[in-house]
C-alpha cells in the first residue's frame, strides 16, 4: 500500500514537471509578449529600450532557460508578479482560491443532495415514467453547454424577474458586516451554484442509477428481503451501501475542480474565482498568474486522481494494490 502510494506520488511529480514545461512552452507561442504590449502602449519607445527590456525580462533567452529560471524562483517560494494587476501573484490568488472553494463546495453538496435520491428513486422504478423523466433530466444535464445554461439562468432570474444579481461576487462598495455580509454573498452565489450543480447532477444521477440497479440485482438483496427486513433497510443498508463504491470515484474526481474552479461558469457570472482568473490571465497574457493557477489546477486533478484510487481501495477490500 505505502509503496503503491509512494510510486504514484513520484509519477505524479514527474508528470507535473513535464506538464508545467509543456504549458510554459505553449504559453510562449501565444501572441504578444510583455514587451510587445509595452511597445503598443508607448509609441515613444526606442529600439534600445526594447532590447534592454527584453534582456531584463529574459525574453532573449530560449524557452527552456526561461523555464528553469522561472521554476527555480517558484521553488524558492516566489510566485512572481502579476502584470495586469501589479501585485504579487500570491496576494492575488489567495482570495480567489477561497471564493472558488465556497462556490464548488456549495454546488457539489447541492448536486449530491439532489442527484443521489433521484438516482436511487429512478433505479428502484426502472422503466417507469418517472425513470424516463429523471433520465431525460440527467441527459440534459450532461449535454447542456455550461455557458448557455448560465445565460439562460441570467435571462430568467435577473432580466425577467429581477430576483437575483446577474453577476459578481458581492455588492460592490458595501460596508456590510456579520450576517448581512453573508446574506449578500449568498445572493450572488445562488445562480452560479445552480448552474454548476445542474452540470454535475447529470453525471451523478446516471452513476447512482446504474450502480444502484447493479447492486439491487445481487443475491444478498433477495436474502435480505426474504428474511423480512423492511424495504428501507434493504434499500439503504444493503443496496445503497454497495452502490456507493463507483460513486466515490466520480465524486472524488469532481473534487479536483474544487480549487481550479469552473472557468466558463465563473467567467459568465463574473464570479471572482480561480477559473475566471485563469481565463483572464490567459487572455491578458498575464504569464505568471496563468502558470501558477495552471499548476494548481493540474496538481489538484492529479492528486484527486490518486486519492480516488486509494479511497476506492479502502472502500472495496477486493481491490489489492500492487
Amino acid at each position: 500500500m505505502t509503496t503503491y502510494i509512494l510510486r504514484r506520488l513520484i509519477q505524479t511529480v514527474v508528470v507535473i514537471l513535464l506538464l508545467s514545461y509543456f504549458c510554459f512552452y505553449i504559453m510562449t507561442l501565444m501572441p504578444g509578449d510583455p514587451v510587445e504590449l509595452m511597445i503598443q502602449s508607448n509609441p515613444k519607445i526606442t529600439s534600445e529600450d526594447v532590447a534592454r527590456l527584453r534582456t531584463l525580462y529574459g525574453l532573449d533567452q530560449p524557452a527552456y532557460k526561461r523555464y528553469l529560471h522561472w521554476a527555480s524562483t517558484l521553488v524558492q517560494g516566489d510566485l512572481g508578479y502579476s502584470r495586469t494587476y501589479r501585485v504579487p501573484v500570491s496576494e492575488l490568488i489567495g482570495s480567489k482560491l477561497i471564493n472558488t472553494f465556497i462556490l464548488s463546495m456549495s454546488s457539489l453538496s447541492l448536486a449530491l443532495m439532489i442527484a443521489i435520491p433521484l438516482g436511487v428513486l429512478s433505479a428502484l422504478r426502472a422503466g417507469s415514467k418517472l425513470d424516463y423523466l429523471v433520465n431525460f433530466f440527467a441527459f440534459a444535464g450532461i449535454s447542456v453547454p455550461s455557458f448557455w445554461l448560465a445565460i439562460v439562468l441570467i435571462i430568467i432570474f435577473s432580466v425577467f424577474f429581477h430576483l437575483l444579481p446577474a453577476g459578481g461576487t458581492s455588492t460592490i462598495g458595501n460596508e456590510l458586516t456579520g450576517m448581512a455580509a453573508i446574506l449578500d454573498r449568498a445572493k450572488y452565489l445562488i445562480l452560479p451554484t445552480m448552474s454548476l450543480a445542474y452540470l454535475q447532477i447529470g453525471t451523478f444521477v446516471r452513476y447512482t442509477r446504474s450502480s444502484m440497479l447493479e447492486a439491487m440485482r445481487n443475491d444478498y438483496i433477495r436474502t435480505a428481503k426474504a428474511k423480512g427486513l423492511s424495504r428501507q433497510a434493504v434499500i439503504w443498508k444493503h443496496g445503497f451501501r454497495n452502490a456507493l463504491l463507483p460513486l466515490i470515484t466520480v465524486v472524488t474526481l469532481s473534487l479536483s475542480g474544487i480549487f481550479s474552479g469552473a472557468l466558463i461558469t465563473e467567467s459568465v457570472f463574473a464570479y471572482q474565482g480561480v477559473g475566471k482568473l485563469v481565463y483572464d490571465s490567459i487572455i491578458a497574457n498575464d504569464f505568471n498568474v496563468a502558470m501558477v493557477s495552471f499548476i494548481i489546477s493540474v496538481t489538484m486533478v492529479l492528486i484527486m486522481n490518486l486519492l480516488a484510487d486509494v479511497l476506492y481501495g479502502f472502500a472495496d477490500p477486493r481491490i489489492s494494490f500492487k
Binding site: 508528470v15 505553449i26 504559453m27 501565444m30 501572441p31 466558463i264 485563469v278 493540474v298 486533478v301 492529479l302
Partner: peptide
C-alpha cells in the same frame, strides 16, 4: 494517455486556441 486525461481540458484548450499559428 493518463497525463492527457488528467489535464484540466478547458484551460488547455483555451491556451492552445490562443496560440499564434504563425509561430508554429
Amino acid at each position: 494517455t493518463d497525463a492527457l486525461l488528467s489535464l484540466p481540458t478547458l484551460p488547455f484548450l483555451i491556451v492552445m486556441a490562443a496560440i499564434d499559428l504563425n509561430k508554429v
